[in-house]
Design a protein around this nucleic acid. Structure first.
Length: 342
DNA sequence: AGTCCACTGGAACTTGAGGAAT
DNA sequence: ATTCCTCAAGTTCCAGTGGACT
């Protein structure tokens, strides 16, 4: 190890998963969600919440924060599910049960209805908060109906778009009618700076970053706290690795574009090998026609010794990549071309 | 106007994991 | 231990689509 002074005191504080010990600049929303959940404490029926706003506006962070707060007060169960990685009804119910301490001997073939019965059994005389993050990625909103129907469950739905429930089943819509929609606007540069300062206090050693630099990150982030934190973390790590005593402007400049691809990396990690190959081909090709894509895919799969996959499955994978927002298609029929988003 | 063709996507079917019954 | 069963994921089959070509 180098003997230079460290810059990072606690890296966890700089990650988006970290739940801060206080929430700043979101008091209105905080109180609203608290009010929705409060009946849970008194043994009454709580109100479901729908947190809605662009990425990095504190939705997930706040939901987790409030659940922690509530759990300190009353014995309730909670589950946090990200619908990006768990988009199907089956997977969501499965992860909820796991969060509630249900031990599965890994079983793929469990009927979904059976999961519901298990969950109902678990929920007997119990209360729970279930956070469904990225709820606009749900493949099947029937799971909402399942959960809304169950007693003792309070839902906190999180999504970037406002319109996710418009095409839902009327029965789901009517049940969601009373859901409390809470809007999250992008942070101002000043607010981002405050959030960063709050984290820096615990995450970095004192005086390793200037006020001007914090403001610069705030500007670069475009009101997205997640991006701002990613820039800060990346710059701090870079500075420390290069043996600098403080964070320099150059470290920040270098971190800016890097932070933009972090979300994507996470999604890509969740893909299977073939899906990764497909994505890689589209990415390296700029624009590629469907036939070229499948041809190349076949070739590379064989080279890599991957299991061969029928073309329909490859198309399903491409569908999935498109659904995840990793690639986009243009034109139709045989003039379809794919390219990566962004 | 008719045919071709490269691609899409729905639907029925198969496969494999793993619990339940015997 | 063996057979049966259910389900999700993958596969097979094929009708539909719409610009290009004759």
């Amino acid at each position: 190890m180098l003997s230079e002074k460290p810059i990072i005191k606690d890296i966890r504080v700089l990650t988006e998963q970290f739940i801060p010990r206080r929430i700043i600049h979101r008091n209105g929303q905080l109180q609203e969600i608290r009010d929705n959940l409060k009946p849970l404490v008194d043994g009454e029926i709580p109100r479901h919440s729908f947190l809605n706003g662009p990425p990095g506006t504190g939705k997930t962070c706040m939901a987790l924060y409030i659940v922690d707060e509530l759990k300190a007060e009353v014995p309730i169960s909670s589950a946090y599910i990200n619908c990006w990685s768990q988009p199907s009804r089956f997977k969501i119910l499965y992860s909820i049960l796991q969060s509630f301490g249900h031990n599965f001997l890994h079983r793929k073939g469990t009927p979904t209805d059976e999961l519901i019965d298990m969950l109902k059994l678990k929920m007997r005389n119990k209360r729970a908060v279930i956070i469904l993050d990225e709820a606009d990625q749900l493949e099947d909103d029937k799971v909402l109906y399942d959960l809304l129907e169950m007693e003792g469950i309070c839902l906190v739905l999180i999504a970037n778009t406002e319109t996710i429930f418009y095409q839902s089943d009327p029965r789901i819509r009517s049940r969601l009618h009373s859901i409390n929609r809470i809007r999250f606007r992008p942070y101002s540069t000043l607010e981002i700076s405050d959030i960063l300062k709050d984290r820096i206090e615990f995450g970095l050693v004192p005086d390793s970053i200037t006020r001007e630099q914090i403001e610069k990150i705030g500007e670069e982030s475009g009101g997205d706290a997640r991006a701002a934190l990613a820039i800060l973390k990346s710059a701090a790590m870079d500075a420390e690795n290069s043996g600098a005593e403080k964070i320099l402007d150059s470290h920040i400049d270098k971190a800016v574009p890097k932070s933009k691809s972090i979300d994507m990396d996470k999604i890509i990690e969740g893909l299977n090998t073939q899906q990764k190959i497909l994505y890689g081909i589209v990415k390296s090709s700029g624009e590629i026609s469907a036939s070229d894509l499948y041809e190349k895919f076949k070739k590379i799969s064989i080279e890599k010794g991957e299991e061969e996959i029928v073309d329909r499955t490859a198309r399903k994978y491409v569908e999935r990549l498109e659904f995840l927002g990793l690639i986009s298609s243009k034109g139709d029929g045989r003039w379809t071309v794919y390219k990566v988003v962004g």
